[in-house]
Nucleic acid binder design. Structure first.
Lengths: 318, 318
DNA sequence: CTGAAAGCGCTAACAC
DNA sequence: GTGTTAGCGCTTTCAG
């Protein structure tokens, strides 16, 4: 009754005022739980990310949370640790809590579970990653373009031996960045020199792959790190080997992050438009929840190359 | 009925099996909403932080989320942006969602609202910050010790002109770190040289205060930055001025963070025990929720000084 | 052992 | 204009 529908039911103003005052004085708060149970609408959405500790996902969470809260929704955050079973459990818990919708950075390879949730009246929107043949709407970076441009940029500085250190191989971002990398090489007639290694978006992976690459005789003159985490490992390994960036080896990374400007040298990177991505995912989800418009938005945002000082001209030919 | 209380009610095994199978085949999921309404227990806790974008708070959130989920609870994360009114609104929303308890990094100066929530059957535990005279349990770093040791460390390198760049002045961590700073100077007979500036845990604040300090004639030989954000601003200003760390000016920061190892030089800092802090806050909260033990735990964790390369001996006396 | 019924706090429909 | 009631899906009590 205290929900602003007074004039809809044509209750007298006096009564409204009386009740409102009494309610305030006793500091009454309606139970959103009961309300949700009754109306089948909780004004809550679920957000699942594989590691809130990763600044990239923290950024996504930050924009999603502030955007939903601006629009009158609450966000329940679940950290899936990148584990498909935790993701599944998280989704189920959210559904049985009757969230109105779900935004998820999917970790698994199988869209089935999420698609079935989506069909069962809880709209799902993918963010950052998506599945190849999927009915689910998504918002992601144009990772192909990112990989292409990063590699072209390196080639433009005369690099011909460019190591690409990859994240989780089956994930769409990794696949697309890799495809961009390969196409850039191909355009330059360097396809024979392609060198792709690694299998995880982690510091450890960046470290090991770089260490390995630097130990061999055919040392790359540039490295394309597919994420900020991989980058850190790469930098560590490079430092340990006594080489300097960019004089001895050039580096380009993915992901934008304040700290990258403070490294020495500041790291040239492909920046994703995170706040736009978050805002769009929320917008699409709420539209679907509220039943207006566009049920299958599939959006790719163009990344931006942020040029810093981690790339120099390749020295000699091998 | 499908809650494992079968033998408590002595239901026949056959029936149980039958129902269970049927439930699974139809893929039945109990409504946690209805359950919560009925039992007044939602197995959900609320977590409020002032900015999930800040790696420090992202770390806290990460440990709190993984710890609660390990113990069978779900976490609802609210980003208060450091605004007391958003915090209040967030807390109210959580309460009316019947969360079983709340963990909060409080932004305001007034404990009243939170204390009243706590008295009204929703236990509240403070983390990172707390209020001076409060009944609310808290877990925090021994910030006094952190400020003391950071400053002593600098003094040990012969520094006598140490600028302390402060975060939000009324917040307990800032006050305690400041007190530690002052006591360290006093012990060394340097109390006349105390220099405290700034009023926010932000890059901007660090930048401006450093810029200002470097522009004057009485340039400090060392800076104690009270947070990782302040530190970034400080570094930027130092770089712009053409000075080098640590040769021309030494720097010590607060907060541990992977990236600090990758800056050049790596930054000596006072590291807080975030995972212990998060785990303890969860433990205390769940104990209070489940009615066992210790209603007013007030815990301070000793920080650790992580020594890197951002401090050198002071050159000459002024 | 099993079935029926009350009630958590709310909203929407319907009677007054 | 206003008061009453059913029912959201669950748990728990009480009869059978």
């Amino acid at each position: 009754m205290l929900n602003g529908k007074a004039n809809k039911y044509r209750i007298s103003e006096k009564t409204v005022k009386l009740i409102t005052e009494e309610a305030n004085s006793r500091n009454y708060k309606p139970s959103l739980l009961a309300k949700g149970l009754r109306t089948q609408k909780t004004n809550t959405i679920g957000l699942l990310v594989p590691g809130i500790d990763n600044p990239y996902f923290a950024n996504i969470a930050s924009t999603v949370i502030s955007e939903t809260s601006r629009l009158g929704y609450t966000t329940v955050l679940v950290d899936t640790m990148g584990a498909p079973d935790l993701e599944r459990a998280g989704v189920e818990s959210l559904v049985s809590r009757m969230v109105d919708g779900i935004i998820v950075v999917p970790s698994g390879q199988e869209p089935d579970a999420l698609e079935s949730i989506d069909r069962n009246r809880t709209p799902v929107v993918l963010i950052d990653r998506y599945f190849e043949p999927t009915a689910l709407p998504y918002v992601t970076t144009n990772n192909y373009e990112g990989g292409l441009n990063a590699t072209k940029y390196l080639i433009g500085f005369g690099h011909r031996d460019i190591l690409c250190i990859r994240g989780v191989p089956h994930s769409m971002p990794a696949r697309e960045r890799e495809r961009g990398y390969l196409d850039a090489l191909r355009e330059a007639g360097l396809e024979d020199r392609a060198r792709i290694a690694g299998n995880d978006f982690s510091i450890q992976n960046g470290y090991l792959e770089t260490k390995f690459a630097l130990s061999g005789s055919a040392r790359p003159t540039a490295i394309f790190a597919m994420s900020n985490t991989i980058l850190l490992g790469t930098i560590k390994a490079i430092k340990e080997s006594g080489l300097r960036i960019p004089d001895d080896i050039s580096v380009v990374s993915f992901d934008n992050y304040t700290y990258l400007d403070y490294l020495d040298p500041a790291i040239t990177r492909v920046s994703q438009r995170i706040s736009e991505m978050g805002a769009l995912a929320v917008k699409i989800l709420l539209q679907r929840i509220e039943g207006t418009g566009n049920d299958d938005a599939k959006i790719q945002l163009s990344p931006q190359l942020i040029v810093c000082n981690s790339v120099a001209h390749a020295h000699g030919e091998k």
